[in-house]
């Protein structure tokens, strides 16, 4: 399901936001925003640093915009992001191997 890059000879330019900005392996931070209203990023993720595990295909409308009936042109990618539990919960008492995976929309992700 991954979008294939067009052969160079065709000179096809993808539109802004059409291709995923991040790729598997990228280290990323979740934005520290507290919007009023509908959002899809749990609070415990704010400012936390994780690693992109996979790009979720296909691109999808921004659920936060869609909640207000606005979705034209807001199609972007979700990313499956991996966090160690100790990054999320400093006093985590389970095994240090434990981790969390979550899908986060592109507009919430910052490059570290």
């Amino acid at each position: 399901m991954t979008a294939r890059p067009a052969p160079k000879s065709l000179q096809i330019v993808s539109a802004f936001g059409e291709a995923p900005i991040f790729k598997a392996g990228d280290e990323v931070r979740i934005a520290d925003r507290m919007p009023v209203g509908h959002y899809r990023v749990p609070r415990y993720l704010r400012k936390k640093i994780g690693r992109v595990e996979a790009v979720v295909e296909p691109a999808f409308v921004d659920n936060e915009e869609e909640g207000y009936g606005r979705n034209a042109g807001s199609r972007r990618h979700y990313y499956r992001i991996a966090f160690p539990m100790i990054e999320l919960w400093p006093d985590y008492t389970g095994s240090p191997k434990d981790g969390l995976r979550i899908e986060v929309f592109e507009s919430w992700i910052e490059r570290v």
Partner: peptide, 12 residues
């Protein structure tokens, strides 16, 4: 054994 929690938030 790693306990891996997947939190579903949007379209997955």
């Amino acid at each position: 054994v790693e306990v891996r929690v997947s939190d579903s938030t949007a379209m997955v």
